[in-house]
Amino acid sequence: MSADLHHRLRTLLFLVPYVYRHRGVPLAELASRLRMDERELVAEIDFLLMVGRPPFLPNDMIDIYVDAGKVYVDLPQALQRPPRFTVYETLALACAAQLFTGDEMGEAAVAVRVALGKVLDSLPPETRRLFDGLAERYLVLGAGGPGPHLDLLRRAIADRQEVKIRYYAASRDETGERVIQPHGLHFRRGLWYLVAFCTEREDLRVFRLSRVLSAELVDRIFEPEDDLDTGALLDERLELPAEGERVVRLRFSNRIARWVTEHWGPERIEEQPDGSLVATLHEVSDEFVLAYAASFGGEAAIESPESLRRELAAQARRALDGAD
């Protein structure tokens, strides 16, 4: 059986009992819950009308239908509950749980382990045996783990409670305190991020969780922001601007050219006649450029602006003086 058919059948075995429990669920909500678009879902509903048990008399068929944008089902006895977890579903949950198992997570790590243990206990013996054979084969590494403040921030988001944080802002190389209204926690490219309204700057900001140095609840409740899609906002902020007035050009030696192309993608890169590469960045902070260029240990140079090029050299000389 193909992976797609496998997934489709498992989705249908969930869909029927779900609608049975939630008769009249809006079509749009059901589609989003199953990550389908509405047209796909209507096609699956039409398909399910042909499913039933022998002798396939009208009363033996799954009677599922859409009425005024809502979905209903009447059933023969089967399919009132979804099937148990499969080994792949359990592996997926176990991989997700790995994100929270770091020592610094404390009680939260224990709670996730207990929850996963309850899922494992619900498995039939054969599925459990398969799971045990595969569990060690998948590893999900978060960089340094989400840190000790994740649980507090999660509760604060749920309770809409303000939080005072100490935060290291890498783009300015400074640590400061601020009161924030936390809205969302997300995981991108192995790192955790917090999207919050900063009451000092009066703006929505993105914080990297590992740079939150301390967090404590403030005794103040904030109003929820309606229609705020924190995930989309984060993706937008993490994307380096494709244009802007401030332009920085970085040159990478041909020794690391392949790595740079793989990392940055070909769009931002111009290959030079000598095999080196030039990347053009827009609206990035000085501190970011200095740190990034320095990390390559001479294999990357700032081409422009000239002032930043001189600044990097001066900083390298200062570091050399300090080291002697």
Binding site: A293, A294, G297, G298, A301, I302, R309, R310, E311, L312, A313, A314, A316, R317, A319, L320, A323
Partner: peptide
């Protein structure tokens, strides 16, 4: 490495 960086400027 720092010497190489310093030269680059």
């Amino acid at each position: 490495a720092l010497e190489r960086i310093a030269e680059g400027g």
